[in-house]
């Protein structure tokens, strides 16, 4: 069975694969083909110290780091970071906050990583995620964690499915986000007495963050504008009936009067002294309207 491209590249970097010179080149070519034509010659030049942006984590002082350039164009949907970005803007720094590290340690103590999984630092969220070197799957939580969602990475998904996948998944995530919130409140109620409520909390927090990042990484090739729009949509107006009652969240046209959907036959738009002078339509007219409405 041939090794996955990501793993081959990584093993190559570690110096574990030496004889597969041609495979490495093949991998490089696959990446080069993704770029647009004008950028092609830039990328095609072999630059050993500045490899093209590779979604494979690289190793830095005993830690795997998912390296991304600190490129301001990452929010541009038509921009793909090339070697130049890394050269011009440098790489993002990964800084692990002590509280995050503490929580991660606690989680790893509870749910140790199985065989084939590696911890990878993500400089964009300053968090660790977990990467299966064999199947190239990723997870924000330890894969043994009951709530872990093991998926393909956002980059891979986008490569395979293209733009359509992004829209679909983002909608799905919206829904699942809501479900999570419900789930969480249930959990809080059930586990409020148990000692694990804190860890549940932190797991939840972690997952939320991770998901947000997931969205971001999926959407980052499409534009920050979209994700900002989504954020706006997530905010619920406190005056919205959906915020304080069982009413479902409406869309733009919800509640607008549509044709043939009168509450009464009387002209409800009149006001003032005319208010009491609202004749009803004739029975024939009503029958006609009813029939129209049934269509």
């Amino acid at each position: 069975m041939p090794l996955p491209a990501a793993l081959a590249a990584r093993l190559k970097k570690r110096g574990l694969i030496k004889e597969k010179e041609n495979k490495q080149e093949e991998v490089e070519e696959v990446f080069a083909e993704d770029y647009d034509d004008p950028q092609k010659e830039v990328v095609a030049q072999p630059e050993p110290e500045l490899p093209p942006q590779d979604p494979t984590p690289i190793e830095q002082n005993q830690e795997l780091i998912f390296d991304v350039a600190a490129c301001p164009n990452r929010s541009n949907p038509y921009h793909t970071c090339a070697a130049y970005c890394a050269e011009r803007w440098g790489m993002r720094k990964f800084t692990a906050s002590p509280s995050m590290t503490r929580k991660r340690d606690r989680m790893l103590r509870k749910f140790p990583l199985p065989e084939g999984w590696e911890e990878v630092a993500d400089p964009e969220t300053n968090r660790f995620y977990y990467w299966n070197t064999l199947t190239d799957q990723v997870s924000w939580l330890s894969p043994t964690h009951p709530r872990a969602q093991i998926t393909m990475s956002a980059e891979r998904l986008q490569e395979v499915l293209g733009d359509t996948a992004i829209i679909d998944t983002s909608q799905e995530e919206l829904r699942s986000d809501d479900e999570d919130i419900d789930m969480r409140s249930d959990d809080d109620v059930s586990s409020s007495s148990s000692s694990s409520s804190e860890s549940e909390d932190e797991d939840y927090d972690r997952r939320r963050k991770g998901r947000r990042y997931d969205d971001d990484s999926k959407g980052r090739d499409r534009g920050g504008g979209r994700s900002r729009g989504r954020q706006k949509r997530e905010e619920l107006d406190p005056m919205d009936p959906a915020a304080y009652s069982e009413a479902p969240r409406g869309t733009w046209s919800t509640g607008l009067a549509s044709r043939g959907e009168a509450k009464t036959g009387a002209d409800v738009t009149v006001s003032g002294p005319l208010f009491q002078q609202r004749p009803y339509p004739s029975p024939g007219e009503i029958l006609r309207r009813n029939k129209e409405q049934q269509k």
Partner: peptide, 27 residues
């Protein structure tokens, strides 16, 4: 039940007047 909604017929007993296919209102 065709006219219940349009004529707002929710009283136990309602009397309405029509003349030449026109609803006549009474103050």
């Amino acid at each position: 039940p065709d006219f219940n909604k349009m004529y707002e017929l929710y009283d136990p007993c309602t009397v309405m007047f029509f003349y030449r296919n026109k609803h006549i209102m009474i103050d």
